[in-house]
Design a protein around this nucleic acid. Structure first.
Lengths: 183, 183
DNA sequence: TGGGTCATGTAACCTGTTACATGATTAG
DNA sequence: CTAATCATGTAACAGGTTACATGACCCA
C-alpha cells in the first residue's frame, strides 16, 4: 500500500477531486511513484469505503459535476501511522528493468550495447534538465499550499533525483568507455 | 513483463528446475528485481504454455521428483527481442516508497525524521558491505556458468549497485546535516 | 470542425504478495 | 529431536496496466 498513502498525503494539504489529485500526483510525486488515472479513482473509492475519506458532490452547470474528497480523522491517523513506521526492507528494494537487461546483454554485440547505453545517456540528461525546471515549481507550491516546514522535505526528494541521475550518467559514461575499449 | 524475461535469461545459460531458478534468481538478480517462489512457479507454467519452454520430469527416489526446464527456439527469440528493444520510458522510472514518505514528512517532528534517516543510513552501509561480498561471487559464476563476454555486464550491474548506495549514503548524510542545523 | 480541458469511471487482464500445504531425507 | 534442504505448488487477494466510454464546453 503506497498509492493510497500518497493520496492521503495530498488530501492532508486540503480537499481535492479525483481529477485534481491525478494532476497533483503527476506533478509532484511522479518522480518516485506512478499511477494511472483509473487506478486513482479506484483507490479513492476503496479509501472512502475504509472510512479514510468523505466525499461531497459539487454540481456544476457549465462543466461536469465533480466529487470533492476530504480526509477524515481515521485517514489522518492512517497517514501518521504510515509515516511513523519505516519498513526498511521493502522501501530499500530497487526494481530496475534496465539493469536486468544489461545483466543479460552479453549475448548481443558490442555496437548494439554501446548504442543502447548512449540512448539511456540522452534520456538521463533529459531527466536532469526536467529536474532543473521542477526546482522552481517547488518554490511556487511552497507559497500556495503548505507551511514552510514541508518544503525542506520536498527539496530533499528533488535533491535525490538530481544525485540519482548524475550518478546514473556517471555510470553510463563509465560503462560506455569500458565497452569502447573492447572494440 | 520482466520476471518472465529474467527467467528466460537464466534458462538461456542452461537447463534448470524451478527450484534452481528460484535460487539463481535470488542469488544474482535480487538486487534489481525480486520474485516470490510461488510467482516463479506460476510464471514458468505460463511460459511453457506460450511455448517459450519445454519441461521434462526427472524422477528421483531419495528426493522429490523435479521438473527440468529448457528454453525453446521461440523462447530464445523472445529473449533476443526483449534485449533488442530498449523501452526508455518504463525502464527509467523509479518507484521509491522511502522518497514518498520523506516527501510527506513535514508533519512529523524533526527528531523523529533525523532518527528515520539514520536508520536508513545504517541499512545503506549494510548494502554496501553485501555488495562487496557479491563481487567475489561473480568471479566464481564467471568460471562456471558462462563465457567471459557475459561477465563484464554482470560487473556493470554490480558497479551500479555500488554507485547507487554510495549516492544514497551521501544523500542521507547531507539531509541529516541539514535537519540538524534546524534544531 | 478538430483538438484540448474538464470530469468521471468500468472491465478485463496481468503481475506481485501472503499464507498455506506436503513430505522425505539429512546433518547437527 | 529439530532444523534445514529438496521440490512442488494452490488459493486468495492486492495492486498496477490497458483499453474503452461519455459528453459538454471552449478555442483556433
Amino acid at each position: 500500500m503506497s498509492l493510497k498513502h500518497g493520496l492521503l498525503g495530498l488530501l492532508n494539504y486540503g480537499q481535492m477531486t479525483g481529477y485534481e489529485l491525478d494532476k497533483a500526483f503527476k506533478a509532484s510525486l511522479r518522480f518516485f511513484w506512478q499511477a494511472q488515472t483509473s487506478q486513482i479513482y479506484r483507490e479513492l473509492n476503496a479509501m472512502e469505503q475504509s472510512g479514510w475519506l468523505t466525499s461531497e458532490i459539487i454540481y456544476q452547470t457549465d462543466k461536469p459535476n465533480k466529487k470533492l474528497y476530504a480526509i477524515t480523522e481515521l485517514g489522518k491517523l492512517e497517514l501518521q501511522n504510515w509515516l511513523a513506521q519505516n519498513s526498511l526492507e521493502s522501501e530499500f528494494q530497487i526494481r530496475n528493468l534496465f539493469l536486468m537487461k544489461l545483466f543479460f546483454s552479453g549475448g548481443k554485440d558490442l555496437k548494439e550495447n554501446i548504442a543502447m547505453l548512449n540512448d539511456y545517456k540522452k534520456r538521463c540528461i533529459d531527466e536532469l534538465v526536467k529536474l532543473d525546471t521542477t526546482g522552481n515549481s517547488i518554490e511556487q507550491y511552497r507559497k500556495n499550499i503548505s507551511t514552510q516546514q514541508d518544503s525542506i522535505y520536498w527539496e530533499f526528494t528533488a535533491r535525490f533525483g538530481e544525485l540519482y541521475y548524475k550518478m546514473y550518467l556517471e555510470f553510463l559514461e563509465e560503462a560506455i568507455e569500458k565497452l569502447e575499449e573492447l572494440q
